[in-house]
Design a protein around this nucleic acid. Structure first.
Lengths: 355, 355
DNA sequence: TTTATTTTCGTGCACGTGCACGAAAATTTT
DNA sequence: AAAATTTTCGTGCACGTGCACGAAAATAAA
């Protein structure tokens, strides 16, 4: 059908062929009613026949609305996990700035659900055309998602997603699998019988957060270990990220008590917290695996303190989310898949360049 | 300076403040001369003061020109290396189709420089606004690049790049490093003394191509091996991709003669050519490393025939190239870096999902 | 039928930029 | 100084869509 004879088909062409005015064509294009059934059918048919496609530029030019894509985020220091999310969002923002779409970030205190709600209200007031929504406090996130649904504002989950199905898209990571992969990489060079045990370092107050996605990662890890090294011990050590000296002392104590253990993992993004201890206590047999491409992690990898980093493009998630929303705003196109799981990158000191 | 009080600054605003007409402002915006020095300076100053930024939509709407981004490629069967380049290019094309930028591919026979020149002429005749240019025949590519330069058409090298500096951008891979990484991954689990040797499988007629980028990769590989396994042998086996049965026979013969060798690498994208032999001759000690995310390679990885695939986003290269060019056409923005080296992904059967 | 109401539809302007045309101003030539 | 030429600049329309306004047509109420 598609008429590909150089000239672009416009609304006027459709109108003429359908024997109506371009106003009417516009009405059916945007489903805004007030068109008789006969006209509508005729117009739809002509649109198909001619293969009409709207001109994005003319459309955006005519539609004066100023578009805003918003994001709600925990306030965070530089080089934090959430900072990566933020960076990706902002990168996307730069990319679409010239398309007259602005971005706004609403920050909250990750230890105060109250502040989340407040930020959520402000976000709604800004009347965005799309929202990037990393769930944090489950119930409050759900409330916010509902409010957005009600207003017809598309929202994209990143990081993890809630069970509601009203989201526009999701960009996240296969947490369970990442844990499984982590276990495998950790034990790559270890024959079955030699593995004495593994130390899992955890953050003491992560219990606070209602739903911790790293739990799934831990499950994946434990399952692999149970399958392949059933007799090896998994030790847990809880550290306080705000007390680096305590951390170092704890690690010292632990490894004095368990001289046979050389394998360490952390399931969140903060493996760099171990850097101090690791650099002061070299061990040729040691293997350390961590997650996420924080700058500090990457430099720890480069300098050999840790061995492997499993990266899941935390920043790409929010970047993709922004781009998906802007594509929807500009071209009215939905992403190919609604739920998108990111690829896991294995980073070692050898392939860390150009990352 | 930037006036951020909601209203967008237009050319008319600039014109009024500079005491000229918008036609004149347009002239300085596009450097098309015919403007007195005094006016020009005044206008430039006002533009800075007001922080004027052109409206992309209005600009593209007014400028009727139909933009084409072209690519010159070896004709290839599906699931070939060059097919990946093509897929990336086409994916980019889909993405910008709604922005009224078309893509065109000019194919040539990779065994005929003559056909390359012909395709190049056709490409020039299509008068593209930008070109994605994977070098193949060195001299002819250089000639084509020159012709493009002369016409002011930006061209982006992908895959590898020539020494001229006229290119708009480059998206490629650190070949040497990929070889080095390959060697390391191949020998990950092998103690120094146990490695008897490695088999390098090569394509018999790759000598034909004037500059073969995989040579660098081979250098990286050999350097690593010389450093870490100085006493191990590197065997070369030349196969003909069009004679699968010969290949299998050659491999059989080789491994009968060298029972101690279990490590295989191929430096091009065709490690899948070994699949038949590998599946019919299982060897628990075997390690196979290959390159590039061809579908056949990926399925060989999934089914455990090969162990590691080093991927360099062959498709992303051409995709990025298209996007960079379209960004330039639409927003007049150049990429952040001129030369972009892609990241190397390490793929195992464990992290191959969602790739 | 006449009037009132609702449904359907056409007209025309605005969005901001690019560019062609030709006029005005400046400069050179006669 | 007048004419010819060159330089500089202003005017106005086109691009294709969205949307407001009000007219025409269809339907309902009188």
């Amino acid at each position: 059908m598609e008429e590909e004879n150089n000239k672009k088909i416009t609304i006027a062409d459709v109108a003429k062929l359908a024997g109506v005015s371009k106003g009417t064509v516009d009405r059916v294009l945007h489903d805004r009613g007030g068109v008789s059934r006969k006209s509508m059918e005729k117009i739809r048919q002509v649109i198909d026949e001619l293969g009409y496609e709207p001109n994005v530029y003319a459309s955006m030019l005519a539609m004066r609305k100023e578009h805003v894509i918003a994001c709600i985020l925990p306030d965070s220091i530089k080089d934090d996990y959430w900072y990566l999310v933020r960076e990706g969002f902002e990168k996307g923002g730069e990319n679409i700035a010239s398309m007259n779409i602005r971005t706004r970030i609403f920050l909250y205190d990750q230890y105060s659900p109250e502040s989340f709600r407040k930020a959520g209200m402000q976000l709604l007031e800004s009347n965005p055309s799309g929202v990037v929504l990393p769930p944090f406090f489950k119930n409050d996130t759900y409330t916010l998602a509902n409010a957005l649904s009600l207003r017809g504002i598309p929202y994209v989950y990143v990081d993890s997603k809630l069970e509601d199905d009203g989201h526009f898209a999701y960009y996240g990571m296969p947490m369970y699998k990442s844990g499984y992969l982590c276990a495998r990489l950790l034990t790559l060079r270890v024959p079955q019988k030699q593995l004495k045990g593994v130390l899992v370092v955890r953050i003491i107050r992560d219990k606070m957060r209602q739903s911790d996605p790293t739990l799934n990662r831990r499950s994946g890890f434990l399952d692999y270990m149970a399958e392949h090294y059933p007799s090896s011990d998994i030790h847990n050590l809880f550290i306080d990220p705000q007390a680096p000296k305590d951390t170092e002392r704890q690690l010292n104590t632990f490894f004095k008590a368990h001289p046979g253990i050389h394998h360490i993992v952390m399931f969140n993004s903060r493996v760099h917290l171990l850097s101090d201890y690791l650099s002061r206590n070299p061990d040729p047999d040691r293997v350390v695996v961590g997650f996420d491409n924080l700058e500090k992690n990457i430099s720890a990898l480069s300098s050999g303190l840790i061995n492997i980093l499993i990266c899941q493009h935390t920043d790409l998630q929010s970047y993709n989310a922004v781009m998906a929303l802007s594509d929807y705003i500009i071209k009215h196109k939905r992403p190919e898949r609604k739920d998108n799981f990111m690829h896991m990158d294995i980073l070692t000191s050898l392939n860390i360049d150009n990352y």
